[in-house]
Amino acid sequence: NITNLCPFDEVFNATRFASVYAWNRKRISNCVADYSVLYNLAPFFTFKCYGVSPTKLNDLCFTNVYADSFVIRGDEVRQIAPGQTGNIADYNYKLPDDFTGCVIAWNSNKLDSKVSGNYNYLYRLFRKSNLKPFERDISTEIYQAGNKPCNGVAGFNCYFPLRSYSFRPTYGVGHQPYRVVVLSFELLHAPATVCGPKKST
């Protein structure tokens, strides 16, 4: 009989979030998941669920729940959905087409922007091929755009693959930082360890 609440607040209220290319994953298990708490945590810009209804979450049980978190800019949030393409979905964080879970995003301009520009958040701009779903690539190998090998040196047709967002508070919403948490629900042929409040007794 599990009584402890799932530590969603640790994920959502973390002081620092990860850069999207090096997104963070927390496995959540053996706890009571009260998803209604999430609705009250922040004024969400996005709370979209796929393959599951957000209002039914509190009635369900899962084997595992994974919470992935990272920062992107406002106009990239739409890429965090099944079947999307674009720089983020292709080279940084890719959801599977049959994704079961929820994408939660909110504006973090007050936390993640600086007047002089916050350069701490990076994204991958160049990659030889698209990522597979939930693949994480943290390599910093020089990207070869031409025929000549780069031998690890940046220059003509040889690019450092990561680029930094420079978040400034005066930017338009599309270029402001957004914190994203992706909850993916895993149903294996194994005992369910993460249940809503109704199912945990």
Rank of each mutant, 00 (worst) to 15 (best):
L5F: 11
L5N: 11
C6G: 04
P7M: 08
V11P: 02
N13H: 08
R16Y: 12
F17Q: 03
A18L: 02
S19P: 10
S19H: 08
Y21C: 01
Y21D: 05
Y21V: 06
A22C: 08
A22F: 05
W23T: 03
N24V: 07
R25K: 04
R25T: 02
S29L: 06
V32R: 11
A33Y: 15
D34C: 06
Y35P: 08
L38E: 04
L41W: 13
L41M: 14
L41G: 12
P43H: 09
F45V: 15
T46C: 08
F47G: 05
C49K: 00
C49I: 00
Y50W: 14
V52L: 11
V52M: 10
T55H: 14
K56Q: 13
N58C: 07
L60D: 07
N64A: 15
N64V: 13
V65H: 01
V65M: 15
Y66L: 09
A67K: 01
F70Q: 02
F70K: 01
V71R: 01
V71G: 01
V71M: 02
R73H: 03
E76L: 01
R78L: 07
Q79Y: 04
I80W: 01
I80G: 02
A81N: 03
P82A: 01
G83K: 12
N87P: 15
D90V: 01
L95H: 00
F99D: 00
T100R: 11
G101I: 01
C102H: 00
V103N: 00
V103D: 00
N107R: 05
S108E: 06
N109I: 07
K110E: 14
L111Q: 15
L111N: 11
S113D: 07
S113P: 05
V115T: 14
S116A: 13
G117L: 05
N118A: 09
N120D: 12
L122F: 15
Y123D: 05
R124Y: 02
L125Q: 15
K128N: 11
S129M: 08
L131W: 02
L131I: 13
F134R: 05
E135N: 05
D137T: 01
I138M: 12
S139Y: 00
E141P: 07
I142S: 06
Q144Y: 03
Q144N: 10
G146F: 04
G152W: 05
V153I: 13
A154M: 12
A154K: 13
A154L: 12
G155C: 07
G155M: 07
N157C: 08
N157Y: 07
L162W: 01
Y165A: 05
Y165M: 05
S166A: 14
P169M: 05
P169N: 12
T170P: 08
Y171H: 14
Y171W: 11
Y171E: 15
Y171C: 13
G174H: 12
G174A: 14
H175P: 06
Q176G: 05
R179K: 03
V181C: 05
V181H: 01
S184I: 09
L187N: 14
L187W: 10
L188S: 15
L188C: 15
L188W: 10
H189P: 12
A190V: 09
V194F: 09
V194Y: 10
C195L: 08
G196F: 10
